[in-house]
């Protein structure tokens, strides 16, 4: 893997709040990475510092091997679609697109126009009169049509209905397939994006707690369900990240891939297994993060 963004010991402090705490992470070139975490975990802060829209307290950021801050050569190759993007009051969507067209060398006008149609974006309305979903569509269209070498989508779906979100995912995937580039997708709707992402970075409380490829995370947790004492026997010595109990039945979510021997032992003990989705896994890990040590894939 080639790293196109390198973040090294990055710390960001807002008065008493530590938004990023000694973060070291890289983003792979031409891959789609999911940047996941709870509200206030530090996702937006991290993306805004990488795109030089915010200052680091300590540490360094490099994109394309250079510091982005006041570096037009780097910044013109990055697009940051913010959840709360500000536009000039009286401007209309086509003004925003015209500005993007001037800034991004790879801007594809035809692609932008076809997206405007698919999102049914009213082009003659001023941006401040757009609905929340239409406003999000403006950002999504800029993010896709800019074809920037690095594109950040920070929860780009606010107000978009299920149909419009599916349009976004499908068009993003199709355009990425024909024009591979680095995409960082921050989202709370993890189930919706789980299949789109190649890498996963989970940030919690300003710290990176997961940094691995999505495929190795899949099957990395399993919920073991059955009679309490049998579950307890099987999970002894394993890393249990969550348990639920109902009477004498217990469900324990354990980390670690199950081996053939494990599966055999489970069958023998009459225990059932349930898959754990990426969303459930991230919820469990960020819920119990303070008892869980960082999990980093050896494959990266």
């Amino acid at each position: 893997m080639t790293a196109v963004i390198e973040v090294d010991h990055l710390t960001k402090r807002y008065r008493e709040t530590l938004a990023l705490d000694d973060v070291t992470v890289t983003f792979a070139e031409n891959a789609i990475t999911g940047l996941l975490g709870r509200n206030g975990a530090g996702k937006t802060t991290l993306m805004s510092i990488i795109t030089a829209q915010n200052f680091a307290t300590q540490g360094t950021v490099r994109a394309f091997g250079a510091e982005p801050y006041e570096n037009a050569a780097v910044l013109s190759r990055m697009c940051f679609v913010r959840e709360s993007q500000q536009y000039q009051d009286e401007s209309k969507p086509h003004h925003a697109f015209a500005a993007a067209r001037m800034f991004f060398a790879n801007w594809d006008q035809q692609l932008a126009e076809s997206l405007v149609e698919e999102f049914r974006l009213p082009m003659n309305r001023t941006i401040k009169k757009l609905s929340r979903g239409q406003l999000s569509a403006v950002g999504v269209i800029i993010g896709i049509a800019s074809r920037a070498e690095i594109t950040f989508f920070d929860e780009p779906y606010l107000g978009l209905d299920a149909v419009a979100r599916q349009v976004f995912y499908d068009r993003l995937l199709a355009d990425y397939a024909s024009h591979p580039r680095t995409i960082v997708l921050s989202s709370h709707l993890i189930d919706e994006i789980a299949h789109l992402i190649e890498n996963v970075v989970v940030i919690d409380d300003g710290r990176i707690i997961v940094d691995t490829d999505a495929e190795s995370l899949r099957g990395e947790a399993t919920t073991i369900v059955g009679e309490r004492s049998a579950v307890e026997t099987f999970t002894l010595g394993r890393r249990v990240i969550h348990t639920d109990a109902l009477g004498n039945t217990m469900a324990a979510t354990v980390l670690g891939q199950l081996t053939e021997a494990d599966r055999h032992a489970l069958t023998q003990a009459g225990l059932d297994t349930e898959p754990v989705s990426l969303q459930q896994l991230v919820v469990r890990m960020t819920q119990h993060a303070h008892q869980t040590s960082p999990m980093n894939g050896a494959s990266r």
């Binding site: 891959a31 789609i32 995912y169 499908d170 995937l173 199709a174 990425y176 397939a177 024909s178 591979p180 299949h195 789109l196 992402i197 190649e198 999505a214 495929e215």
Partner: peptide, 17 residues
């Protein structure tokens, strides 16, 4: 790879794998 990725709505790198 791209046909599989589009049909299953998955990342092309995963389909390639």
């Amino acid at each position: 790879t791209n046909e599989l990725a589009a049909f299953h709505r998955i990342n092309p790198a995963t389909a390639a794998k």
